[in-house]
């Protein structure tokens, strides 16, 4: 039966790939984010690809008043959500202007967490529904290059873990997704990228994790082992490394 998916941060390449995959299997979509023109284009695309419904709605992690209208748009279909938002200003920019930290934390953690907290009762009421939270391998360890972003994502990971604990009791489920390098506008032109995955592959991995009710996945899968190694480096050594 057709379900409804809310994609938060729907202008991202990964969200667009997931939206298309959901559309082609016949699920309805609410595309939420800030760029309404862009999301409207994706919504039209998804309708043509087979989505029974697809609409763009404003979501701004820094404007919580944009959250409730999205929940008001739900009908009695089973509702699922996938969160792709986050912001990663350059670490040296943050070093120069520490106030930027607040925005990173709101965009990558507290904004989406607050929205998911409002959504959770809807899943509990229906007794079904999946939340996909896209975190990052950057959240697995604080690294010189992006530790503020990593810290926000680590907070989000922990939040998702707790939310999973809560929703499991009510028949819901939470999948934590930790992508490695993905070929998106965020990584375009960054030197020394390796093992870069396509957004379509991430979308396939997400759908497979949802179907199999996995808890935490890395995508592509081998990042689990890369991060296992990185996490196992003793802090005494790690603090002198630039990885």
């Amino acid at each position: 039966m057709s379900e409804l998916w809310i994609l938060i941060g729907a202008s991202s390449a990964m969200a667009r790939a997931l939206a298309r995959a959901l559309a082609e299997r016949g699920d309805g979509l609410i595309l939420a984010g800030r760029d309404m023109d862009d999301m409207s284009a994706t919504a039209a695309d998804c309708l043509i690809r087979g989505a029974p419904s697809a609409r763009a709605m404003l979501f701004d992690a820094r404007q919580p008043e944009t959250f409730q209208p999205i929940l008001n748009a739900l009908d009695d279909r089973i509702v699922n959500a996938a969160v792709f938002v986050g912001s990663m200003p350059a670490q040296d920019g943050i070093d120069a202007a520490p106030a930027l930290i607040n925005g990173v934390v709101i965009d990558s953690f507290t904004g989406p967490a607050r929205f998911l907290h409002m959504l959770a009762p809807e899943i509990e009421t229906r007794g079904s529904g999946v939340i996909v939270g896209v975190g990052s391998v950057a959240g697995d360890r604080g690294r010189l290059g992006n530790y503020v972003y990593g810290a926000a994502k680590a907070g989000f990971h922990t939040y998702l873990s707790g939310l999973r604990n809560r929703l499991t009791r009510a028949g819901g489920h939470v999948v934590t997704v930790k992508p490695g390098f993905v070929d998106t506008a965020m990584t375009w032109g960054i030197p020394d990228m390796f093992l870069v995955a396509q957004p379509e592959q991430v979308a396939r991995d997400i759908l497979s994790a949802v179907a199999r009710r996995r808890d935490v996945i890395y995508t592509p899968f081998f990042w689990r082992y890369i991060m296992l190694i990185i996490r196992s480096i003793p802090e005494r050594m790690f603090k002198k490394m630039s990885v």
């Binding site: 202008s11 390449a13 667009r16 760029d35 023109d37 862009d38 284009a41 998106t184 506008a185 375009w188």
Partner: peptide, 9 residues
């Protein structure tokens, strides 16, 4: 090479 993902870009 640039690879815009949105018309606005």
């Amino acid at each position: 090479l640039a690879r815009p993902e949105r018309l606005s870009s």
